[in-house]
Amino acid sequence: MTSLIFKSITKTVSPILMIFSLYLLLRGHQMPGGGFIAGLMTSAGLVLIYLAYGCDFFDWHKRSRFFYYLFSGGLALSFLTGLAGLFIGGTFLKSGVAHVEMPFIHESWEFASAGIFDIGVYLVVCGVCVSLMTLLGEEE
């Protein structure tokens, strides 16, 4: 698999995948997309790198703790967002929306607490996928 072609393609494709995944994450509130799909997309990019360069490239084994906390932190973020609804005066998972006038571009952007929730999901998916990959790839 680690042919030159594959490596070169990976070099080009994986950054695009990452950026696309961010796009998916941010548009997720109103349009198709969201944390889960974005997380999978990011993971797909990471898988490509993994397949092309092996796990030494990012030194994933040594960073397993990082991914563990990525996963736990994402979970905590989503949970806290849900919990916030409870304290703001609604119910659990109650979403809040704020419209903020952006400086310089003079547009009103919509920020929803669901977005933070999505970021949490994104982190969880990334963490899980990478952990899974290292776990499965360990044997070779």
Binding site: Y69, S72, A76, L83, L86
Partner: peptide
């Protein structure tokens, strides 16, 4: 509206997350 009803789900869920973070 009482939040009592979701507590049996939220407390263990939160605990689980805290426990994940407190690994060390």
């Amino acid at each position: 509206m009482t939040h009592l009803l979701v507590l049996p789900i939220l407390i263990p869920l939160g605990t689980a997350i805290v426990l994940l973070l407190l690994r060390a």
